[in-house]
Amino acid sequence: MTKSMQQHSSLSTKLGLTLLFCLLGACTASTITISGSFPSPLVRKLPLTVGVYYPDELKNYSFIEFDDNTGKDQYIIQSGTSQVELFNTLLPALFQNVVMLDSLDNVQSNTSLDAVFVPAIEEFQLGLPAKTRLNVYEIWVKYNMRLSNANGEYIADWVMTAYGKAPEETFQSVDSGVQDAATVAMRDLAASFTIGFSGIPEVNEWLKDNDYITE
């Protein structure tokens, strides 16, 4: 065998091995970016001007699902953009005026604000059919909601959970199953938030004390 033939053979072997590793899924974790549009809730607006601040942790939120066998990243679920989109649809439907805040530093100088709302994700869980042996994709999210007045004084701090599931379908990709479950979970949060906001005991008391609602 000539030197050039040996080089060619070595290159082919390397290329073949690289392709084999890639095919075996050893290259990278799959990134699933959650996207979707959400309907605006059908409710009467509360007569409030609310400042909204999205922490960077929420805006860039991503969850990593690890492979049980290798311990390596298997799926990276990026949901920050859709979380912001969800609140951007939900809050203007619920409150008379919504003011987006870049930071919480100068909130006190904004005298037009009745309250400041800060949502955050505390926990995220993913259930894949391949792992749970159930024929559904499941997503469970625990949120922390904080409402304070413009002076930074606490009004309410409460936890909300959202759950979404989507049936596994034939020839469906994991990406599509996770997307569907996430959309259901985020709609679930929006529904509970819309219906339950005025009913949160501390919020209800504050709304009544300030004559924003009568009962």
Binding site: P39, S40, P41, L42, V43, R44, Y163, V184, R187, D188, A190, A191, S192, T194, I195
Partner: peptide, 27 residues
Amino acid sequence: DAMFPFFEPRTAPMRTSHLQELMTLEV
């Protein structure tokens, strides 16, 4: 979508008494 959030899995009326309650909401 149009009736959101009243007919979601967690909020949908399960009995007609719940529907009667829902229909008291003007919207």
